[in-house]
Nucleic acid binder design. Structure first.
Lengths: 190, 190
DNA sequence: TATTGTTATACTCTATAACTATA
DNA sequence: TATAGTTATAGAGTATAACAATA
């Protein structure tokens, strides 16, 4: 694969009609990243008509899967910081899609659940997700689609990804680093 | 696919060990988005040791493909705003990887080209990209990999993507919208 | 006046730490 | 003192508009 650049034809300037990045357009890494970003954006745009973002969708699905969860557990499972979870749930609660109930045994805890409207909205969102799925899979038969899913699952496994957890964009400057001694981040207020 | 939620087993709380999002872990859309984001981050982290980001890599590849391009043409081809291109080229120029030359016939124009160091660095970066490729493709034979690439190219085509152009994350609030009457964006300075 | 490249700024997003209330 | 949730703020990233130089 190292030789394929058309620059070896002498020294002709030869301005290409478009960018000659075809070589990397022929790699799994580039394609999966390009297609993944475009798919995410398509879904985001389609979901916007429900006043939801993909993370709201993920939160609602997680609540549906296990009713009356703690906010903290929810945040932990989805790998979202607790303070972001507050904002996400505020958004959903303001639209009447989820409800926060005080735990009678421990009044620090809020148990979260979907309302009837939340269930209905989630059903519509699932239909939108299926619409995105059928758009991007246009031209595939069922067997091909299953094959593709299996290969993508293997790639996910090669990357050490947890099933069903979408890491989003991750931290900008290597969010995984434990920062042994540096990263002053934010000085404590005086 | 609609019925598979384990919530129909009565009313048992049944706290799941992990999040029960397995249903969407079995869709091309979710997987390609999840895997694409993780692949992009892996590549970004690997590239960081060269003091480069993926967009620098894309810019260098585009310059290599067509030497002595206008900054504007470069920005247009890669679908990056011109002001961002300035910052990217500043970064590369400060490290001696690219050089900006004044066009003798039109002194408004800067023609950009890779230095010798830039070529060398790009070669290393390509090797890093191939490392990411072989990591994510672990366990695939050549035929499977080609098959996967072909399917991903079809998905890209279904999404209307231009070959070789990575749209990144796109605009936060629907960057594709022409904004007929609204979006005050930024009021002109007084 | 139009165009190329540059600088400046405003906006969005999000993670961190302080804070409140409960235990 | 420790924990659940909340609020506030700092920082990064980036797109838009103004600007300077040249045509």
């Amino acid at each position: 694969m190292p030789d394929e650049t058309p620059a070896a034809d002498g020294g002709v300037p030869a301005p290409p009609p478009a960018v000659a990045l075809g070589v990397f357009g022929h790699s799994v890494g580039f394609l999966v990243s390009q297609v993944g970003a475009a798919t995410a954006r398509h879904f985001k745009d389609a979901l916007a008509e429900l006043e939801l973002e993909p993370r709201h969708f993920a939160v609602m699905r997680a609540i549906e899967a296990a009713h009356r969860q703690t906010q903290q557990l929810l945040a932990e499972n989805l790998q979202i910081p607790a303070s972001s979870m507050v904002a996400l749930l505020d958004h959903l609660e303001a639209r009447g899609l989820v409800a926060r109930h005080l735990d009678p045994t421990d009044r620090r805890i809020r148990l979260v659940e979907l309302t009837a409207a939340g269930h209905a909205r989630l059903e519509t969102a699932v239909r939108i997700a299926m619409g995105t799925e059928s758009l991007i899979c246009r031209g595939f038969d069922a067997e091909e689609r299953e094959w593709l899913i299996a290969r993508l699952q293997r790639v996910a496994s090669n990357l050490g990804l947890a099933a069903g957890v979408h890491p989003g964009d991750g931290g900008s400057t290597g969010a995984c680093g434990p920062a042994p001694t540096e990263r002053p981040r934010r000085p404590p207020r005086a």
